[in-house]
């Protein structure tokens, strides 16, 4: 029977070759543009991180010097700490709120189209207007939020964006508010993949709403949840614009995050090599978290 083994192997080899060719054929249109315009410059970053570079001329190889400096750089550690602080709260909060919204708006309610659009509004509203309104609502002296807090008996309501201790929570709340519609949209798309029949079958079995959510909705949403979690993680670690318009990293360094620090070091202080090194750290951080999520997801699907 040796011939059949060889034949199977040969056939399998052919299948692999055929699949490889096919796979690449599907990837190519996107991959060509992606490699040329994104992968190459990103790859260069890994070189620049080990150099001293002023962006105009050639870079001077300095080995690990940038990374050694990073270890001693207190501002870097502050920025890293703030970024992790932000991500640790923003990720679960946004996940919960946007999933809740998607579930709420995945029904045949009257006017659901209107409410879906409203939920998406913060994402399309000008970020300047968002910063302005929220800063005003949270204004320590005259803001309505603190008026309410005082009314219900809080003697010393927080100073929010003007206080070193409360600026980060304020930013987290506002950015969750802004992002919820975006991720809701992704969840809404994901919810459509769950066959209605599964819900009906579960109902016939007498399962309650919570049981159906756990037994039908969550497993059916797994690919979407994975996608949203990874995207949310990456976007949280890269957070920049909302911080820039709301607090500009202040007061002091209380909301300084890594993306902002990279921009500062690069474009303001002309240390592009050092900025690249910080980017590598940010990249590594995102990447490790993503890979863990990838592994967990893969184990769960199998």
């Amino acid at each position: 029977m040796t011939t059949t083994v060889a034949e199977t192997r040969r056939r399998r080899g052919r299948v692999v070759a055929r699949n490889t060719a096919l796979g690449w054929a599907f990837l190519l249109p996107n991959f060509a543009g992606f490699t040329l315009l994104t992968l190459v410059p990103v790859g260069l970053l890994f070189y620049y991180a080990f150099t001293e570079w002023n962006v105009f001329g050639g870079a001077t190889w300095t080995g690990l010097e940038n990374f050694q400096q990073l270890v001693r750089d207190n501002s870097f550690w502050t920025a890293l700490g703030n970024t992790v602080y932000y991500a640790a709260f923003h990720i679960p909060l946004t996940l919960a709120v946007s999933l809740g919204l998607a579930l709420l708006l995945n029904r045949k309610l009257r006017g659901v189209a209107f409410f879906r659009t409203v939920a998406f509004f913060p994402y399309i509203t000008s970020i300047v207007a968002i910063a302005q309104i929220w800063n005003m609502l949270l204004s320590p002296g005259f803001g309505p939020v603190n008026e309410v807090l005082r009314f219900i008996g809080v003697a010393n309501p927080p100073g929010w964006t003007t206080s070193a201790d409360w600026s980060m929570p304020a930013v987290i709340v506002v950015s969750t508010w802004r992002d919820m519609g975006y991720y809701m949209l992704l969840f809404l798309a994901g919810l459509q993949t769950i066959p209605k029949q599964l819900h009906e079958a579960a109902m016939v079995d007498g399962a309650g709403a919570w049981d159906r959510f756990r037994a039908v909705t969550l497993p059916g949403l797994r690919p979407t949840t994975f996608f949203v979690t990874v995207l949310l993680t990456i976007n949280s670690f890269k957070v920049f614009d909302i911080i820039l318009v709301m607090t500009d990293g202040g007061p002091g360094q209380s909301t300084l995050v890594l993306s902002q620090y990279i921009f500062q070091k690069g474009f303001e202080e002309n240390q592009f090599g050092y900025a690249s090194a910080v980017s590598i750290v940010l990249f590594a951080l995102c990447f490790v978290v993503t890979i863990i999520q990838f592994m967990v997801n893969r184990r769960a699907t199998r």
Partner: peptide, 14 residues
């Protein structure tokens, strides 16, 4: 996915 994790500001000039 990895490239998504790199802030644009850092490879904008190259």
């Amino acid at each position: 996915i990895g490239t998504l994790a790199v802030p644009w500001a850092s490879y904008m000039v190259p």
